[in-house]
Design a protein around this nucleic acid. Sequence first.
RNA 1: GGCCCCGUAGUUCAAUGGAUAGAACACGAGUUUCCUAAACUUUAGAUACAGGUUCGAUUCCUGUCGGGGCUACCA
Length: 591
Amino acid sequence: MFIVQQLKETAVFALLQLYGIQAERDSLIVNITPDEYEGDYSLVTFPFVKQVKKAPDVIAHELGNLLQEKLTSISGFNVIKGFLNITFHDSLWIEFLKQENQNKLWGKLPSSGKKVVVEYCGPNTNKPLHLGHVRNMLLGYSLSNLLKKGGHDVSRVNIYNDRGIAICKSMVAWQRNAKGETPESSGLKGDHLVGKYYVEFDKILKRETEVLMNGGMSKDDAERNASVAAEAREMLLKWEAGDAETIALWKKMNNWVYVGFEETYRKIGVEFEKNYYESETYLPGKEIVLEGLAKGAFFKKEDGSVWVDLTEKGLDEKVLLRSDGTSVYLTQDLGTAQLRYDDFKMDTSVYVVANEQDYHFQTLKLTLQKLEKPFADGIYHLSYGMVDLPSGKMKSREGTVVDADDLLDEMFETAKKHTLELGKIEDFSEEEAASLFKKIGSGALKFFILKVDPKKRMLFNPEESIDFHGQTGPFIQYAYARISSILRKAAMIDFQPDEHYSPDRVERSLLILLQQYPDMIREACESYNPSQVANYTYHLAKSFNKFYADHSILSAETEAARDFRLALAAFTANVLFSALEILGIEAPERM
RNA sequence: GGCCCCGUAGUUCAAUGGAUAGAACACGAGUUUCCUAAACUUUAGAUACAGGUUCGAUUCCUGUCGGGGCUACCA
């Protein structure tokens, strides 16, 4: 039962009958009536003024009369300027509540038959995950849940940038200075250990550069001629040549990193169905380039390098294979895209990648279209804004990177502190308590990040800890815990909303919000935007808190009121749970 | 230089071209014999600037100013 849809359909009919206007159902503007006005939903009539040649309020009255005649569920309407405010009968709302309050699948859209693959995270293997990856992971994970809720068949995949000069730097520095240090011997997480040597490489390079510069060399020349830099380049060549010793070291260090990453994924609560590795996709990528060259989609320059010409599309010429025949970033992505299509035959590929790569993804899509690949048109780049610090962009060299593991641990600690201060869980076992701290701490972090429109840059201030009050994850979790507490106490009551109950303003707004849930899911899906889910969830929790403060539930004035409110609370809990689940936030029964 | 994105209260975020631009934090004032006060109520506070389109502009267009990104045979 989609009340708004039905209203719009009837309005389309009414417009045709009254004025002969052919309106598209989805072009009609129907909003939830603001609290200051009487009504449930408002239809905006300004857009018809021109065609009808009548005043907006006259149109509103005429429409209102006909709508009420056609739709018996409408109990009345009022008109303010061009706004037709419509009220539905109590019985419609009671019936709605009765039907859906126990429906855990409320909001789940029918199957679309579409296969979607969401690629996210995409880390380099030379250093640990940081705040940027956190935003990426939370977006990728919640978007996947959202698309599932929207009826799509979704798979999550990761792509490891496991080769190239960066990992070689860590390898060289480790060889030089680590004295065989391992995650076991050092007690460091594998990704942190490898990251430590990535930083170490920079230090060595700096020292060597200074020595050369003191000898009279320019900075650029000194950086190029430093022996440690030469070693890294040599290491890369050896890797590409398949040198056994190099490959063994590379595998060893990368494996340390993977073990470390897995731990972080578990901690933050994300998962992947399949991993791709650029070391395995760059060769298929090369083949695709050669195939394109043979088909005439690409061209070769005198020096032997291969290019794609995208100037017709307003872009540039982009290199696909260097003159020495080695591949570049784009080459690998062509290969990865092909492998992924072979694996999943998806209709849509979502790439969750920061907006600094907007240009790259335009290039990737256009290049695949030029090759007439069947999966080219289905590429969607979820381009999200970078996370900035008050000092600006995070820079690993300046040590301003916010580490993902540290951040999560801090969140858990803060949650612990707040929770213990409130003293509501003294009967919890140690495990139960620890699990709750994680739920609340990560809930706060996840909501903080996911409430922001993905497209926009966002600011994170490590000096000010993330809030647990107000517009936050714990606020929503708390609303859920309160409802759970009531429902535990009401376990013996078989509540069913009574037909004759008349919900007041506050109860009505909560019902209207609950009714809106599937529409919100559809819109959020269409715009690939989990922040809409986050903001909706906050409004729902807020709306419930208002209701909770204004009304007694268990000791309501009448049995009818009690049963209605219990059903309303249960329905709210179900939707909060479902929406939080999309965001990857756990809903605690107590907190 | 060229191309792309962004400028909303002190701060962090909202607002498919629609009603008096919403919240939260911080600041001020309140609410606990009663279902969990991580809550509720309440005061004050913002669309960078200048034009244009529109019945109506934070939203669309143009320009100015300010911030960020891309523009590698790096990934």
